[in-house]
Design a protein around this nucleic acid. Structure first.
Length: 414
RNA sequence: CGGAGUGUGGCUCAGUUGGUUAGAGCACCUCGUUUGGGACGAGGGGGUCCCCAGUUCGAAUCUGGGCACUCCGACCA
């Protein structure tokens, strides 16, 4: 991709009102654009990052055996009345009437919708389990949207739902998803803690949250450095859990930290299926409710969370996994014979490497500054200095190396 | 929903004891010179001063009401 063609141009100043790192940097670098509080456009660079995040999630979720679908975002009131959540979740749901007076909601989650699909298509234990997921926009009437893209009124999420014949099978799958989540966050480079939390409008049971340790986070969590125990502040406060010692292993190595919640998994038992009449016949012809769970990851929030934990004075520092491009190619005017950026660009593309080529007719300083701001992990420079080689520099380091094009391709593919 | 802050070209801001035709830097357009860390010269275009009402001979500036954004709190997968 040519940088001269990428929309929009980078900004010199962060927006006046921006305070959080993700807000300042993602806006300045041209990844996102704000329509109103909590409502953002993902611009070409931002969308590329979210697509990369989604690709990782998709790959790992597919491994659990789940299948991808796309469910509607416009929901009738009736389906929400089946579980009583039209009233219970009134505060967070966008509810409205059309001109005939019929009532609808914009989707804030899909438990009811998923179960409606399932009950229409299953009769026997042999039809189970079923696990479906999709990537879609969630609408939530947040009392206070904030922190750039971290808490929006609409945002993108991967949500997965599963139903099972028995409790045992349910927990087996739940554990499978938990492991998939850990792989997803690890691949993206996040330091994630699993914490217990209360279920809010979703369930009276405790649920598991996946928390990225970050100063800019709005959650406060406690976790044990010796074992896997963790809980959010609300749970610790409400249940009066002692946090001097770990409730699980009795170790005193309890840490308190600010964190960003990036994923959540909910064991629902049979509460929802009983209310929505999602039953199947077991081996003995007996009617039974399905065991149900749901599992979410906020993919746009993950982009913001990464910026919160990985940036410096100059800009964002992406890693290879979620960077919008593999390399940033900079060409400086050169008189001597050597590599021409055009040739390098074409060669890299031929090898399936995603290149952002800064072909603009502007000063060297401006190119370097934009390069640091956008934060692609590898910078390649072609200039009078580089001759028959290319300058190679990692975003997070000041060291520069000179490699042949062949070697560069080898390194990028390896 | 409570508290605080902010609203002036595309962006960041100055201007406010009320007084010509509202300014700067950046960005943009034209021409030329530049090119290893946000270059330089010359010329040029661009404004419902957030909105509405009021006070006044006269309002970006004063008064009242509203709206928007950011932060803190309440709230929250």
């Amino acid at each position: 991709m040519l940088q001269s063609e990428i929309f929009p141009k980078t900004g010199k100043e962060p927006p006046r009102e921006a305070e959080s790192a993700n807000h300042k940097l993602l806006v300045r670098a041209g990844f996102i654009d704000q329509l109103m509080t909590g409502s953002w456009t993902l611009l070409p660079l931002g969308w590329r990052v979210v697509e990369k995040i989604n690709a990782i999630i998709r790959e790992e979720i597919n491994k659990t055996g789940a299948q991808e679908v796309l469910m509607p975002l416009l929901h009738p009131k009736a389906i929400w009345n089946e579980t009583g959540r039209w009233e219970k979740a009134k505060e967070i749901m966008y509810q409205f009437k059309d001109h005939r007076g019929k009532e609808y909601a914009l989707s804030f989650t899909h438990e009811e919708i998923f179960l409606d699909i399932v009950r229409k298509h299953i009769t026997s234990y042999q039809d189970l389990p079923i696990a479906l997921y999709h990537f879609s926009t969630k609408f939530r009437n947040e009392p206070r949207a904030r922190s750039g893209i971290l808490r929006g009124r609409e945002f993108m999420m991967k949500d997965l739902y599963s139903v099972h014949a028995t409790e045992e099978e349910f927990w087996k799958y739940y554990e499978k998803v938990r492991q998939a989540y850990l792989r997803i966050f690890k691949r993206m480079g996040f330091d994630v803690k699993i914490t217990e939390a209360e279920g809010g409008v979703f369930t009276d049971n405790n649920t598991h949250e996946f928390q990225v340790l970050a100063e800019g986070g709005e959650d406060t969590i406690y976790y044990c450095k010796k074992c896997n125990w963790g809980a959010n502040k609300e749970l610790v406060t409400n249940k009066k859990l002692l946090t001097i010692k770990c409730p699980a292993c009795k170790s005193p190595a309890i840490k308190k930290s600010k964190a960003i919640e990036v994923g959540n998994i909910f064991p629902f038992g049979t509460w929802y299926s009983e209310r929505m009449h999602v039953y199947y016949q077991d081996k003995f012809g007996k009617k039974k409710p399905v065991w149900f769970g749901s599992y979410g990851i906020g993919s746009t929030r993950l982009m913001g969370a990464w910026v919160e934990v990985s940036h410096d004075q100059k800009g964002i520092v992406w890693n290879k996994e979620i960077s919008p491009f593999d390399v940033h190619l900079i060409e400086l005017k050169t008189k001597k014979e050597g590599y021409k950026a055009k040739k390098v660009y074409e060669k890299l593309n031929e090898n399936g490497i995603n290149v952002l080529w800064d072909n603009r007719d502007i000063s060297a300083g401006e190119k370097f500054t934009d390069c640091d701001l956008i934060g692609i992990p590898i910078r390649l420079v072609v200039s009078e200095k580089t001759g028959n080689k290319l300058e190679w520099k990692k975003r997070e380091s000041d060291k520069v190396y000179f490699f042949t094009l062949h070697k560069v391709i080898e390194k990028l593919l390896g």
